[in-house]
Nucleic acid binder design. Structure first.
Lengths: 294, 294
DNA sequence: GCCACCTAATAATTAATACTTATCGTTTAA
DNA sequence: TTAAACGATAAGTATTAATTATTAGGTGGC
């Protein structure tokens, strides 16, 4: 097996053929004429056959006629591949998989991703919504590149970057007595029928822990939870982002004492390098969400 | 547009992936480990992204995972192309177009080409038979690579190499009075009904020219000519090779005075380089036919 | 026919690149 | 904890590719 042919040499030959002379080919390649002469001759010697007729005009030999289309093919394939790889390298092309908690997925991501795809039109995005724990798991297992989730437990394989905080409040019907309050302390909730949900654990290590512990109801499904609240079956606590703001029947009252926040952060694996498109997404998310109140 | 990626660098990357370590990849590539390290790093810098995870084990980055199959593709395409081109360069593969006069085509080429294709099984051959003049024309116009023909007129675009001589003789019915002669002089033919054919011009510049000039019949088609002779309609002159030796009714008597020979030679263009496969054929024909009496 | 002119080949030199040897710092496994 | 394996780095060398300057070979104009 012969040693590698150099793409550049093939390109030289093609250009000489296209231009019809070594001189003008050299000009277009920003080389001098002897550079082409020598490179072509070196290639010819390696192949053991001349590509160009020597002596008179620089026509191709029959062997050259055979080779040049093949050279063109390979150079074309190289260029397409190189272009493709470069686009992926600089993050203008690729596929990013993101997992987020549902509240972020529905309230924050739509506008954000619209802006992202406007800026990076050739990046494909897959967005999964899962609960906070499963978001971390998907990141850790490499099922997604990035996660946006509430940070609740450190994992040494994952790297967390804080984005913003999300205040916990009480959600109840608009006609509920608590609805008129500007802000609430946990004592005000005693005696209320509290329905727990997936975010209730955020209160566990606070002064309001007892409230949660005494609650008999647990509903994980947000749609069911909202329906229960609308029916006046009780109240619950939610991070503001998880509260459906457009709902006409329910209202959100911030919890003042204790002031509880859900810390939302960007999660990625610590070992694996992100694909360039994911790096672009990461930078975009940090730029747009870091330190923002929402 | 980025500068050319080097096939060799891509090969290095692929080998590191296959072997799982820089060390063993280097061993298989007959290089030292730092050579690979540096080459890979150079490529990574040009792409602007790492292909391998640095720090811990040498796994591929997601970007590397994306690239390596494409690198493999290009290297594979390169190798196939290089192989193909090399085979054509050394004449083990290709297509040769030959034109010969009919007598050579039917009497000499069959066995010769059988031997050739046994020696060069991957070379395709096209064989045309045409008259001597048109053989030269086909060569001159590049329709064929090589011609085997009688040399009768110099052409500055063509290069002739003598192969062998072909004696002219008289062809007549076995029951003809001349048939019993061992050899003949032109005087013996006077009074005979001579049928001219395409090869009769070979006698024009000899002592027998008058015979030909006085002949009233001309038949160019060999089948018709033979039929005429078999019918006893006259006699003709032919080079020995053009005489159908298996014919039971006709016989060939060498012409002694004048002794006329048809010079058969190999013809090719003087300007154009032969394709490697044609070079192989040329060498083969010269080896087999040069100086041979037949 | 001779002379300019255009082109490619060659020679000498320099720049760039690829590789080697030697060494160091980590990590892995005994 | 040490030895072994691995990769990164540094310094030096070899190889390759490019430059400039020059030569040589045709071609066309006069």
């Amino acid at each position: 097996m012969i040693s590698d042919l150099k793409i550049q040499q093939l390109r030289y030959v093609i250009m000489v053929v296209e231009e019809g002379s070594f001189h003008s080919a050299a000009r277009r390649l920003h080389r001098t004429q002897p550079a082409l002469s020598m490179a072509v001759r070196e290639l010819e010697q390696r192949l053991g056959q001349n590509l160009f007729e020597r002596g008179s005009k620089n026509r191709l030999t029959p062997f050259g006629e055979y080779c040049v289309p093949r050279f063109r093919d390979l150079v074309g394939q190289h260029d397409r591949m190189a272009n493709d790889v470069i686009n992926h390298a600089d993050g203008t092309q690729g596929h990013v998989h993101i997992a987020t908690v549902p509240s972020v997925a529905s309230r924050i991501m739509p506008a954000l991703l619209a802006e992202f795809i406007a800026r990076f039109p050739d990046i494909n995005i897959s967005l999964h919504d899962e609960n906070a724990h499963y978001v971390c798991q998907m990141v850790a297992q490499g099922e997604v590149d990035l996660g946006i989730t509430s940070i609740w437990q450190t994992n040494e394989d994952l790297e967390y970057a804080h984005l913003f905080e999300d205040k916990i409040g009480v959600v109840c019907r608009r006609d509920h007595i608590l609805a008129s309050c500007e802000t609430l302390g946990w004592q005000s909730l005693q005696g209320e029928k509290l329905i727990r949900n997936g975010t209730s654990r955020l209160l566990m290590s606070t002064a309001a822990a007892q409230l949660v512990e005494n609650s008999a109801f647990y509903i994980s499904n947000m749609i069911s939870l909202i329906a229960m609240l609308e029916a006046g079956a009780g109240i619950t606590t939610l991070p503001r982002l998880a509260f459906p703001e457009t709902n006409a029947n329910l209202c959100f009252v911030p919890l003042h004492d204790p002031e509880v926040v859900r810390r939302i952060g960007l999660v990625k694996t610590i070992n694996r390098t992100l694909a360039p498109a994911a790096q672009a997404m990461q930078a975009f998310l940090l730029e747009k969400l870091r330190h923002g109140a929402e």
